[in-house]
């Protein structure tokens, strides 16, 4: 009790997520045309390690703690912290690349803990994933929801900062993408 979300909250998230997807689709062409800064070098679609570093950052990907000797603030060093899913970045990805990056990140998550930058990228990629989904995509997002459920089951504190993000992921997969057997029930 206290860990799983109410039906009302879930319905609100589905509604909000639907609006976000509509907005992304509406403005995709605009953001796709924007130039990126020179430091934003996106990996090739089949570069799995490159995408993990790009999205999650070298620190998390390599389990490196920020050292006191860093001259650049970790919060501003996207190479170390991971690039956020800016619209100008994610709008440039093809559907096949979106699916591939989802697979890379979910694969990473199978062996690692849930971190904030992972949540942001998963949300952004799911927001850009066009429906109807391919069977492979259905399988992938179901894997994500199951992994989120497993991590959530190990949480000991309702105030754990991961809880709300895990609930959000499960809700989006189960309610928005209609994998109803995975939905949290009241």
């Amino acid at each position: 009790q206290g860990f799983s979300p109410s039906l009302r909250w879930q319905q609100q998230q589905v509604s909000n997520f639907s609006e976000v997807r509509q907005s992304v689709a509406k403005h995709r062409q605009h953001w796709r045309a924007q130039f990126l800064d020179d430091n934003v070098v996106m990996p090739k679609p089949d570069d799995e390690d490159g995408w993990k570093r790009f999205c999650l950052g070298e620190n998390v990907n390599l389990d490196i703690s920020p050292s006191e000797g860093d001259t650049v603030s970790p919060g501003l060093d996207y190479v170390k912290m991971g690039f956020p899913p800016f619209l100008s970045i994610i709008s440039k990805l093809s559907q096949s690349t979106i699916s591939a990056v989802l697979e890379y990140l979910i694969s990473w998550f199978e062996e690692r803990d849930f971190v904030p930058q992972l949540g942001r990228w998963l949300y952004a990629l799911l927001a850009c994933l066009e429906k109807p989904l391919l069977p492979e995509a259905h399988s992938l997002i179901r894997q994500l929801a199951r992994r989120c459920s497993a991590v959530r089951a190990d949480l000991e504190d309702k105030d754990d900062e991961r809880l709300s993000a895990l609930n959000l992921m499960i809700c989006i997969v189960a309610r928005y993408f209609e994998q109803n057997d995975l939905a949290d029930k009241e």
């Binding site: 609100q12 976000v20 949540g119 952004a124 927001a127 959000l168």
Partner: peptide, 30 residues
């Protein structure tokens, strides 16, 4: 009006990030 809010959406490169953060916070508030 609606036109201004649409323009602000266009110019906000961080819209997806904000939407995610807002969703996460909403559960804590609930």
């Amino acid at each position: 009006g609606a036109g201004q809010s649409e323009d602000s959406d266009i110019w906000d490169d961080t819209a997806l990030i904000k939407a995610y953060d807002k969703a996460v916070v909403s559960f804590k508030n609930a």
